[in-house]
Design a protein around this nucleic acid. Structure first.
Lengths: 138, 138, 138, 138
DNA sequence: GTGGTCTAGACCACC
DNA sequence: GTGGTCTAGACCACA
């Protein structure tokens, strides 16, 4: 399954679900029109409460990523891919803005920061090479 | 005074105080050994609750940036500058890690991300030139 | 066939069936005394669940629009036309009441609201001229 | 107090709260910058659950009408009036669209519908004259 | 004190 | 079976 959550994280569970769902769609792991797990199924699988999943789904709906029909289930919207990519990119940019602000006040120079980013990304891709499939299943 | 807060910001007041205090030390605006305002003074000056300031000071103490001497007040630690810089750099790295992770799953390439970072930083420094006093918060 | 449904619409399927059935009678497309499709037939034709059609029929019966005779099928009531018109008019009035209430509290004037209604209706009839078959749902 | 709900209504409680809050702002009963009742207060006053109020507030927040700060309360946004009026008008138009559709399929003529609207609105304003202040308080 | 999150469990509407 | 709403009650973060 493409979703996993960390109950110890400080980011709320429903936000974790939203983020992962957006990524799953943006990366093509789930495709427009497909059905996503029922709230009950996902809740029991993640061992969290039904309402928490329902909230995540509900907010993804008002974001336009999902559509659900009573009695039949919840589905990925036809234009979900574009929405999720736009949304995710927006969030990356926002995070970058915040980083730039802190970096500036720390008088970290432009080039130093770029070097840091490169370093982090390279480290990541190496990890991905040795361990191509991370699965949060327990 | 070297501290100001924005009550409308989404970042908690006590975090804003901590950040500005670290920044003031890192940038040299306030030097090791100097005394910082009393909790009471800073609270009335910023028109916020006394407990909020107390919490910020308390956490900065356990971080090693501040030290309080019974009866005489709170002072900047001798090695505060190193501490604040190390702490801030640690935070930047952590944020970068998270960004890199999302970027990767969005299949944003290394170079594309670097370009984004450069863009954001350049925009920032331009703003700083025209408008030297900016509070980039929300 | 005089019935069609849109599974993507937010209005429940059984409501869509009821509305279209009432409309078919009100407009004369189907006449008192005629037989309507069996529950099973309509369900397979519309590719929806049998229970959904059954519910629509059941409620239309208790409304007096349809009557079923044991073993021979379901038929349009003799006085169906009057019933469907009365029922529909009742619903329009009810909706108008709610609109008027909100409009009033928004301090939308009587004449302004009338203008809005006229505008909407004119737009509709134009659309109907160019594209006679429209399902205005969702 | 400016809010009341009907637990028997088919429209969800949290939607009723949202609607009334929007109207309260649109009509000027609450002004930008003012604090709205705390979730706990409104919940006990309406004799409904805290979570239900919280949900209404949360959604009004993402709509831009309210802003809340942990620890200090929930407030009406500076530009709330424009938002609520736009939102309310949008909803009135949407309702009118639906009415027009039903009216058309019932072959209710343009002028007949306008007459109905006028009738309903006039009835309303008369009621308002004789009983200028309706208060849902029990 | 404030709002934010989460749980457990119930009931309803729809298919 | 599905999603949608509501409750009661708990715990946390913030001022």
């Amino acid at each position: 399954m493409y979703i996993s959550v960390d109950p110890k994280s400080s980011t709320p569970l429903y936000v974790q679900i939203k983020e992962q769902m957006r990524l799953a769609v943006a990366s093509g792991a789930i495709k427009p029109g497909e059905q996503v797990p029922t709230v009950r199924d996902l809740a029991t699988q993640l061992r969290i409460n039904l309402n928490t999943v329902a909230r995540a789904y509900r907010e993804l709906q008002s974001e336009g990523l999902l559509t659900s029909r009573q009695g039949s289930g919840t589905f990925v919207s036809p234009d979900a891919k574009a929405i999720s990519q736009a949304e995710s990119r927006r969030m990356v940019k926002q995070m970058l803005d915040r980083i730039a602000a802190t970096a500036r006040s720390l008088q970290i120079e432009r080039d130093e920061l770029l070097a840091l980013v490169a370093e982090v990304m390279d480290k990541m891709s190496q990890q991905a090479d040795t361990n191509p499939e991370v699965n949060g299943d327990e």
